[in-house]
């Protein structure tokens, strides 16, 4: 069985570049669900619903929020850094959590292939 360490590290570097650098060039337009959610309502320039009937009307403040809310780290100076820090932290946290859980629950002995 070939080792995967090198491949995983290379993949992680790609993910960090995508989340840390490329993410700042992502589209800021409402996504498919958000745009459907405001159909039927009038929305002002700030994105606040001003009238009508639509799915987004029931939406409430997020329950947790936090310094990384909306991928905009509040401790960073500037938009690029706020998004970049959020992306890098998110990739590392996700990798640590998922990798740790999967490693802990893996089968200890692989059957002969």
């Amino acid at each position: 069985m070939r080792r995967t360490t090198g491949f995983v590290i290379a993949g992680l570097v790609v993910a960090l570049l995508l989340a840390g650098v490329v993410s700042s060039f992502a589209s800021g337009a409402p996504d498919g669900l958000d745009s459907a959610s405001t159909r039927g309502c009038t929305v002002d320039a700030a994105g606040e619903i001003t009238g009508g009937t639509c799915m987004a009307q029931g939406a409430k403040e997020h329950e947790v929020g936090g310094p990384f809310a909306d991928y905009t780290f509040t401790g960073a100076g500037g938009d690029f850094a706020a998004t970049a820090v959020s992306g890098v932290v998110g990739v590392l946290v996700t990798f640590a959590l998922a990798g740790g859980l999967f490693w802990a629950t893996r089968r200890r002995r692989a059957p002969a292939q």
């Binding site: 491949f7 995983v8 993949g11 998922a98 990798g99």
Partner: peptide
């Protein structure tokens, strides 16, 4: 480890 990478 591959699954950890896929999630990230």
């Amino acid at each position: 480890p591959m699954a950890g990478l896929v999630a990230a």
